[in-house]
Amino acid sequence: MTAIVTAEGLGKSFGRRGSTSPPVLDGLDLELQEGAVLALLGPNGAGKTTTVRILSTLLKPDAGRATVGGFDVVRDARRVREIISLTGQQVAVDDKLSGAENLTMMGRLAHLPRRVVRDRVAELLTAFDLADAASRHVGTWSGGMRRRLDLAAGLLTRPRVMFLDEPTTGLDPRSRQALWDVVRGVVADGTSVLLTTQYLEEADRLAQRIALVDGGRIVADGTPAQLKRQVGEAGVELTLAAAADVERVAAALAGATVDGARVRVPTDGSVAHVRSVLSLVEDTGVAPEHWEVRAPSLDDVFLTLTGHAGQEHPARTTGVAA
């Protein structure tokens, strides 16, 4: 396997000279293998978008180096631009143009011959299930359709690497599913994909490797299965009314952890195990206010691997291109 995207020690600060604001990127390394999907997973302000902007030649790093297809993203920016496509957080299509007009414009700007543009536009509109709406102004389309068109606009040239910055943020579950199918199709055609997301599920569904980003560096990476093993399994979580109840319930359950009014026991999620946990609770005579079975969430991943919750970093949200 060969790496098609590499980054070594990327650093970037947006603060003014002499200011003490923390760097947005602080020695970030990554590698995307040819034909694979790598997900950068992390909260707002972690440095995901800045990484994508550097790799897609929009921003110069302060430190470190990065290559795409063997070309340096700073020195050979023009060559890099010929083999990539970027789909940013904001949908970059014109509302007052039709779907076909939007795609044709991008094809012309990619300097494809007219006939190739025409064929490719028709092909992509059909493949992305947009052919019926193709002649209507994009402003009248749904969010999911606009997002698919946005992706299609980046695919006219059959790029070798595609950067997707939070492609499904703000989409409803069905549109998200449709977009995932589109991305899988792109990968099947041989394009390597680097995507950023705040959703563990999305990274899990699409990527062979997940890199966890926090504080401008990669804090963990591996296959989805490896990461989840590090985080731990699902748990039964009980919320109790009184401190005495918390003690009694925790004492009755082997391997329980206590967090304030909550008691948590790891579970494999099977009916038999959950049932045995609940009968142990029942035996204590305590009635929990609330209980649920919770799968590991992005918050758990962060709590486990970084020691803090995966929330926005207040210190880092100002002055940063999110």
């Binding site: 631009r81 970059a92 991008m106 980046g154 950067f163």
Partner: peptide, 13 residues
């Protein structure tokens, strides 16, 4: 502000 410039700047234009 709408992302169009980002897309165009990531293309050989």
């Amino acid at each position: 502000s709408g992302g169009m410039v980002d897309r165009l700047r990531s293309m050989p234009v």
